[in-house]
Design a protein around this nucleic acid. Structure first.
Length: 400
RNA sequence: UCCGCAGUAGCUCAAUGGCAGAGCAUCCGGCUGUUAACCGGAGGGUUGUAAGUUCGAAUCUUACCUGCGGAG
């Protein structure tokens, strides 16, 4: 009898390349395609866990290895029983490996074969992160899905740079796999659950495909990553400065070739239209800071397009942000009030806009899943995308 | 009534004889595995009014106006 897997994944319906599936984790069921709110420092910024769980019904959120490792540190989180107990999030948790921070922290880093030397952005102290250390931190966090430690090159990097980065990522993927397996056998994963009929109760590990905007490198990266063997496969290194057309070239060529029986995760993407576009190419999982970050910077995502609440045109607009949205914010508050809160620097502006934006993203994914199951995905995509253009097609006078 | 101080962008203030600026506010843009309640751009001026000195005045002189303080 083969060993039980850490997660289960089943494709329940297909419409073209788009797939509707069910991801089974040790902390609950997740219908795919799924959007995962980003909770870098152990918190989805601006949202109470009650709202995340009950009102928004997020099934899985992210945490970040690099940030939690620097503060509060592994000792604190391990002493508090792992990240689930620390922040009291009972549902699934995916932790990013810190690989993206290697890229985004830019000048503060030095990359070697062994790993990455960082200057902490908090106090300037020298830190060292490697595949092994990343796996150890993620075991202490006890997340349900662990990401391999990768190296993310700039999206517009030339082939030689992308190749070196991709090959380093492949070597780091092997080392991540080895250390991850060791930590599981040492029982250092703080998030372990009881074995069930289907699952082992262990953490799952996802590999990451790199290779920049070069399809040959992407194919090679995929083959090498699959050869190592992971519970799911992610596409990294997109939406990091490359042309949007390059992103769709890569996703379109790569995603259909990713193992069909495993979840496919497009890291860091994207706008509402990006999510739907990627689903049409076969992607199952997403995360992005846009709904939360832009919520804090005055932007609302709606079914008619993005709205900048800073604009004076909303000052006396008594309608909800999105007239076809059923979220708690749209049921209660007007554009005029939300703009007032934002312009006044009130903390509630961030809270309410973040709530609505997450509600819109999660609801969009619900509609995506429904349309795939009923075989209407193409029609849904066309109508959804047309709806998003409403504001850019109309001028201000027509809106009022 | 007299004496003193002050008047510069919507607001608070820089510039002390040599290209009138800043912060905030306003308007607009950006944000894609969070160093981000952030970042960027734009508009906005008869320097209280009027005369004078000077090659050149926000700046020096005089008068007036307004405000604040003091004296009576």
């Amino acid at each position: 009898m083969p060993p039980k897997p850490a997660i289960g994944f089943a494709v329940l319906a297909r419409d073209g390349e788009a797939r509707a599936g069910l991801l089974t984790t040790r902390r609950g069921l997740i219908e795919t395609p799924v959007f995962m709110p980003v909770g870098t420092a152990g918190t989805v910024k601006g949202v109470r866990f009650e709202a995340l769980e009950d009102e928004l019904d997020a099934r899985i959120i992210l945490g970040n290895t690099y940030h939690l490792w620097l503060r509060p540190g592994v000792d604190v989180i391990r002493a508090c029983g792992g990240l689930h107990r620390f922040n009291s999030w009972p549902r699934a948790l995916l932790t990013d490996s810190g690989g993206f921070q290697v890229w985004s922290l830019g000048a503060l880093r030095k990359i070697t074969e062994e790993g990455t030397e960082f200057r902490s952005h908090l106090d300037g102290s020298l830190k060292f992160l490697s595949p092994e250390i990343s796996m150890e931190v993620q075991a202490a966090l006890g997340s349900d899905i662990v990401m391999a430690f990768d190296e993310c090159a700039a999206g517009d990097a030339p082939p030689d740079v992308s190749r070196k980065s991709m090959e380093l990522t492949a070597r780091w993927a092997s080392r991540s796999r080895v250390r991850f397996d060791g930590l599981q056998s040492e029982e250092l994963d703080t998030g372990r659950t009881d074995e069930t009929d289907l699952l082992s109760g262990a953490q799952a590990l996802f590999g990451i495909v790199q290779g920049g905007a070069h399809n040959d490198l992407r194919r090679e990266s995929l083959a090498r990553t699959v050869e190592i063997g992971f519970d799911g496969y992610a596409v990294g290194g997109l939406s990091v400065g490359e042309e949007k057309s390059a992103m769709w070239d890569v996703v379109g060529a790569l995603a259909p070739d990713m193992p069909a029986e495993k979840p496919r995760y497009l890291m860091g993407v994207g706008t509402p239209e990006d999510l739907v576009e990627a689903v049409s190419r076969g992607v199952d999982m997403f995360d992005c800071v846009l709904p939360t970050r832009n919520g804090r910077t005055g932007q609302a995502f709606t079914s008619r397009g993005k709205m900048n609440l800073k604009n004076a045109q909303w000052a006396v607009d008594t309608r909800p942000l999105d007239e076809s949205c059923a979220c708690a914010v749209c049921r209660r508050h007007s554009r005029a009030y939300l703009r007032h809160l934002y312009m006044s620097g009130e903390i509630l502006a961030s809270v309410l806009l973040t709530h609505h934006n997450l509600g819109f993203f999660l609801d969009t994914m619900r509609r995506v899943r429904q349309s795939i199951r009923s075989g209407n995905f193409t029609k849904f995509q066309r109508e959804f995308t047309e709806g998003l253009d409403t504001y850019s097609r109309q001028n201000v006078r027509e809106l009022v």
